[in-house]
Every structure is written in C-alpha cells, then in structure tokens.
C-alpha cells in the first residue's frame, strides 16, 4: 500500500514540463477570459468617452438615489444578519437541542434557492394580493415595491454568510473559555464581550465583509420586489440594467465600475483578514 502511494506521488511530481506549462497556461487563460477580461471591459467601456463623460454620468440624481438606496439596504440588512449569524451560530455551536440539524440545513437554504424564487415568495406573502399584504396596507405600510421589501429580499439572500463563517469556528473553540469566565464571576454579557467576541472577531469580520459584498451586489431577489421605480426603489445593480437597456452605455458601465471597485476592495480586505486571521490562529 505504502509503496504504491509513494510511487504514485513520484509520478505526480515528475510530470513532464510541457504538461505542467500547459496546465498552468490553461488555468491562467481561463481566469483571464472569465474574470479579468469582463472587469477590464467594465472600466474600458466606462471610460470610452473620456474621464469627463465618466464623471458626467454621476450628475444624474437617479444615480445618487440608487447609490444611497444600496447603502441604506446594506446598512440595515448587514447588521441584522450579523446579529442573526452570531445568535444562530452561538446556539448551534454551544448548545444541544432538538431540531439543531434542521436549523443548520435551513441556514444553508438561501445558497440553494434561486434568488428570484426568494423574491417571488416575498411578493406572495407581502404583496398587495398576498397573505399579509392587505393587512399591512391597512396599517399604511408598504413592503413590496418599497424599501422594506428590498431589505427583506437582501436579508434572505445574505443571511448564511456570517453564520457559515462562525459555526465551525465556535464549534472548534468549544465552551471551556466561557465556562471559565462565568466561574470567575463574569456575567453572560461580559463573557460574550470579553471572551467570545475577541475569539471570533476575525471570522466575524470576514463573514460581515462577504455578507456586505453580496448585499450590495444582489440583483435577482431585489429585482422582483423592487418595482423599478426611478429614484425610489432602484438599487445600483438594478439601475445598471436600466441604463444599459436605455443604451446609455457609459453611465451603465460607470455605475457598474463602482460595484466592481467594491468587489476589488472586498477582495483586498478579505486577503488582509485571512492573513491576520491565519497569524492569530497559529500556535
């Protein structure tokens, strides 16, 4: 057995040079074609008529309204999902209870459900002709085709991110430090603040970052519940589509370039956290 394994790995290590080069070249060209070229295209198209035209795109008040709305939705959805993620992973990692595996499965649901379906579900439940829509309308609260609907749809799509990061981390760390803190006289809240939170902070930050990137970039789910009212319910991704459909390519790519930059910033921060996170868990 052992002999077979070593001879196998020797074969792997001894791949001919041409094959190695071919594989590397394939991987790189694939990456260029699928990832780098489109991102480059976004910036080239945005700057096609010069830097002046690029900045002129942002004179449109509807663009600013889309940016503000995107930030507002993220500012509500991300903290709520962070809270939910921490609570859910705490419950899953530190307690035993009936239905635990069901909860874990449910947390993963948004990853497997098409965002469009998620959006339709909210329309069905909260729309004017939906189950609770009429009641909310009587109270003067509009959910679908308004900000609350956008927030709900965004939350649905992004809620696994924080919990997914924290559950394995908290499970690995166990209960001992919390029990030690309690035995030393700390309250439950203090224990969380001074013991649990510092232990999960890098994982938490990482989850929040991914959650935020997805919240700002989400298209499908918010598209269904938005209603595309200019200057009111268009988020940045939705507005990019509208501009593009109106053949306003420079403006469309200019707004898209903001989202692309968000992605790049996220990538850099993610790398930094991984580096820091890795350093703090060693030893």
């Amino acid at each position: 057995m052992a002999g077979a394994a070593t001879s196998k790995s020797r074969i792997a290590a001894g791949e001919p040079l041409w094959l190695r080069l071919l594989l590397i070249a394939l991987a790189i060209s694939f990456l260029i074609l699928i990832v780098i070229l489109p991102i480059a295209a976004v910036f080239t198209e945005a700057l096609r008529q010069g830097i002046g035209a690029y900045f002129a795109s942002f004179d449109d008040p509807d663009v600013w309204s889309a940016i503000r709305l995107t930030l507002l939705v993220a500012a509500i959805a991300v903290p709520l999902n962070t809270l939910f993620g921490v609570v859910a992973s705490w419950a899953i990692a530190k307690f035993e209870f009936v239905g635990k595996s069901l909860l874990v499965t449910l947390i993963d649901l948004p990853f497997s459900v098409s965002p469009v379906v998620a959006g339709f579900v909210y329309v069905l439940v909260f729309g004017v002709h939906g189950w609770f829509g009429a009641w909310f309308a009587e109270q003067g609260v509009q959910i679908i085709f308004a900000v609350p609907g956008l927030v709900l749809a965004t939350m649905f799509v992004t809620f696994p991110f924080v919990a997914r990061e924290l559950i394995p981390l908290m499970e690995e760390q166990g209960n001992d430090e919390e029990e030690a803190a309690l035995s030393l006289g700390a309250s439950g809240f203090r224990t969380f603040l001074r013991v649990t939170l510092p232990n999960i902070k890098w994982g938490l930050l990482y989850g929040v970052l991914l959650c935020n990137a997805r919240a700002m970039g989400e298209f499908g789910a918010v598209s269904v519940v938005s209603g595309h009212i200019r200057g009111e319910t268009n988020t940045m991704p939705l507005y990019v589509e509208i501009l593009y459909n109106e053949y306003n390519f420079v403006a469309a790519f200019a707004v898209a370039s903001l989202l692309a930059m968000l992605a790049l910033v996220t990538l850099v921060l993610k790398k930094l956290i991984e580096w820091r996170f890795g350093a703090s868990t060693v030893g």
Binding site: D176, E177, E179, A180, A181, L182, S183, G185, A186, S187, R194, V195
Partner: peptide, 16 residues
C-alpha cells in the same frame, strides 16, 4: 456557576 465563587481548573486549562 457565577454565584458560587468556586475556583475551577479545567482539564485543557481554558485560558483566554
């Protein structure tokens, strides 16, 4: 646990 004020030493130390 908090009210008893006993000193507890854990098997795997549980240091912060």
């Amino acid at each position: 646990l908090r009210q008893r004020r006993v000193g507890f030493v854990f098997q795997h130390y549980a240091l912060f």
